[in-house]
Amino acid sequence: MTPEINVLYVDDEQQNLNSFKAAFRTRYRIFTALSVTAALDILDRDEIHVLISDQRMPEITGVEFFKITKERYPHIPRVLLTGYTDIEVLAEAVNQGDIYRYITKPWDDLELHNSVLNAYDHYKANKELREKIAELQKTNDGLNRFVYSLSHELRAPIASATGILDLVKMEGRMDDSGDYWKLMDACIQKLDYYVSQTVQFYKTARFKVEHERIRFEALVRSLLDLYSTSNGTRDISFNVQVNEEVPFYGDVFRIEIVIANLLSNAIKCQRPEEPDKKISIGIRTRTAGAAITVTDNGTGMDTEYVQKIFDPFFKGAQPGGLGLGLYILKEALEKLNGTVTVESEKGKGSVFEISIPNNPEK
């Protein structure tokens, strides 16, 4: 049976190569080379698992040879055999990763054998790691393509269907076919929301945090303008108080996600029977950070739900929702090193308090 480990031993003395072959020929598949040129030819041609070299050779030293092989074949562990002790050279070679281990000559067979086995285990572990990384990269590429399809290819037919429904509404024909048009409208809105939440979660988890000047007043107003076009905000009064005492710097993408999900949650939790629906947004910036508070007089929730609402796909407080909004909010806050606290009472409403550190320009 051919030994599993391929070992290349480089030495300018044939006697040393013969001794190595005699000692280990039954344990490894052995390759030998009398010169650096011959060794590089073997490395180009065969898969070598462990590389062994003598330190003193007429062309270059073993350490210098290992520097070359480290650049060309970085994943092969290198074992140096030396007949003399040059601590400075060896220490530098070890620290720079040029050699995996060094052994003094004449070598001890057991010590050298154990070193080869350890080096081979190191080679296998690195190879498995590279394969796992390649698999992860392949999976990541597939995920990128999937999210691209969600945000572009799937959004296109949703936009077309929404446009058709808008024409039906403009022509006042929503009641022509009973509730069919309304059911279709509700389904399309829900599908668009699911797609938006999925893409939002992906971007929150993947995008790099970027710091820039945040103007909360304009940000909140733009979000309220966006939500004002939806049917769910028609009977809700919004009270906005923004006090930007000092300039605030943060990741505008994730901060917008945080505020948008707070507003969306407050809107969805309104009670239909409440005659005076209210949502209050308070923001104050200081040198240390920004404090954001969103208060509503909606459905509220039992204490048992407060600790679970940030779990993915938890729908206890909003049975009709996807259960991702507050989870995405928490993920975004973690990227910002922010915190969130919740106070809620069933039938009376909820208060969400957010704290986000300020990251001023250096």
Rank of each mutant, 00 (worst) to 15 (best):
T293Y: 02
A317S: 15
V294M: 02
I283A: 03
G282V: 06
T287D: 10
Q318M: 14
G298P: 03
D311V: 02
I281A: 02
T295F: 05
E304T: 13
G289H: 04
I281E: 00
F313I: 06
Q307G: 08
N297Y: 05
G316Q: 08
F313W: 12
P312T: 10
D296T: 06
K315G: 03
D311T: 07
A288T: 11
V306P: 01
T285P: 00
P312E: 11
F310W: 07
G316Y: 08
K308Y: 09
N297E: 07
T287F: 03
G289D: 04
G316T: 11
P319D: 12
P319V: 10
R286S: 11
N297F: 05
K308H: 13
A288Q: 14
V294C: 03
A317D: 14
A288R: 10
G316D: 08
T285G: 01
D296P: 02
Q307T: 15
A288N: 10
T299M: 12
T295V: 15
T285S: 04
I279H: 04
V294I: 06
G316P: 05
Q307S: 15
R286A: 10
T303A: 15
Y305A: 13
A317H: 12
F313H: 15
E304M: 10
T287K: 09
I283K: 00
A317F: 08
E304D: 13
G282W: 04
V306E: 10
A288K: 13
T287N: 06
M301N: 09
A288Y: 02
K308V: 04
K308P: 02
A291W: 07
N297D: 09
A290S: 08
R284S: 06
A291L: 12
